[in-house]
Amino acid sequence: MIRVSDVRFRHAAAGPEVLRGVDFAIAPGEVVALLGPNGCGKTTLMRCVSGQWRPTAGQVTVAGHAVANQPARRRALMVASVAQDHEMSFDYDVFEVVLMGRTAHVGAFSAPGRRDRQAAEEALAQVGVSALAARRFAELSGGERQMVMVARALAQAAPVLLLDEPTSHLDLRNQLLVLQTVRAIAAQRGLTVLMSLHDPNLALAFADRVLMLADGGVHADGPAPQVVTAANLATVFGVEAEVVELAGRHAVVARRAI
């Protein structure tokens, strides 16, 4: 579904290479977590996959189409994104926000119709936040906001869902709630999910597969328990940690920074 072929990226022609030949593919329906320390190129890679930034070399294709060459509308029909945080200059209510997810489905000169409103309502219901529809987005809690943004991405009805550190501003319960919801909906709708995460424990709990990024390249790639290992955590994150197994689940116990 997603194919990243030898992607390289630098901000300025003379600048350092942020991504140095990243190469991987994600099959339809897979839920993949991207792990890596700050500055390893996670966000850059997410932006290249969403088509927001164009790789300096190599290319990203989604369903066979190079995303960087697509017009915004076509891209939005293929890929829906959820960012870390959301600032709005105007005080839209939740339903208006979710309805904006339908932009790519609505003609340039028209307004959303009944079908679009229905899609927005379904998305809110599937995420379980229908009760928030009439609330003002600005007065929601961080967790509620993120759920609404997931609903907006669902309303977009794209086969690929990208989440860039979707849990970084959330408390423990909301982190679990957001990722649980994403996981369940991805299964129901058959979505392909790529999410960047900070917490290896969340990756272990919610991803089929983990890509560990270090220094602009893929350091390890495979099923979560095989990638999130004490050795990888030490080399990539510089953390002395132990991976324990409890009742069939793996968990990282971090000891100290090396």
């Binding site: 927001q52 915004a72 939005a76 960012a83 932009t103 790519a104």
Partner: peptide
């Protein structure tokens, strides 16, 4: 005629593009 798109545009360029607005 384009006024509904002003909502998406007012979210900023990145989000507007991600939603399908040039």
């Amino acid at each position: 005629a384009l006024r509904w798109r002003l909502n998406a545009l007012s979210l900023g360029d990145d989000e507007a593009r991600a939603l399908g607005v040039e």
